[in-house]
Design a binder for these strands. Sequence first.
DNA 1: ATGCGGTACCTAGACTGTCAAGGTATACGG
DNA 2: CCGTATACCTTGACAGTCTAGGTACCGCAT
Lengths: 111, 111
Amino acid sequence: MGRSEKKLLHGTLDTLVLKTLSHGERHGYAIARWIEQETDEAILVEEGSLYPALYRLEKKDLLQSRWGVSELDRRAKFYALTDRGRQALDESTAEWLRFSDAVRSILAPGS
Amino acid sequence: MGRSEKKLLHGTLDTLVLKTLSHGERHGYAIARWIEQETDEAILVEEGSLYPALYRLEKKDLLQSRWGVSELDRRAKFYALTDRGRQALDESTAEWLRFSDAVRSILAPGS
DNA sequence: ATGCGGTACCTAGACTGTCAAGGTATACGG
DNA sequence: CCGTATACCTTGACAGTCTAGGTACCGCAT
């Protein structure tokens, strides 16, 4: 499952990544695994989506990175929110909830 | 407003259109206006997104169309759900709710 | 020793759906 | 008669995801 949600993720992954990092610094691979775990595998984060997203967010100055060592002693790139990232998270979270309420109001009226 | 939800709509418009038609036959223009109204303009349906979507859905045999005359006596193309469309609506609604619950569980934990 | 699966990163190219911006035509009100 | 609204359509740019490939290292079982 989670196989055909491909298009739905569009534009949402960035927000999910930002949110994940709001709990503290994490490396890329761990971000993906955390999102999957937290959603019971309902959302699968492909590496071909993840790394471009991280690059994108860092270029927009919403994240900063540093090379370090993972829990399993492997080289890993750790990402952390910047101040602008924290702000962007608030905005895009609000935006997503607004959007999702709108969709819900059509798909599941009366709930 | 509703201006930056662009990417979020990705993959959701089809479902919204199907759902709109589940209330009965409607022409394209009316579908768009209905979605906008129903969501308090939170979702704006651009014609450049709508018509390709209708074409797409009809090609997939989820909709059928006929030319007719609108409430305002203008030529208009009316769309109706097919059986497969009704089925697709059920599936994609369930899929969207699943997805949106997953996102919510990350963005708004404890709610 | 060798191979496999997991960790961890990266990238190129295809694909898909949205949008902006153009266009056509008709009807109605001022 | 001119602007606005209704109603349809299309082209091209763009953005984000996915598939499928790759690198490198580690531990474990064969």
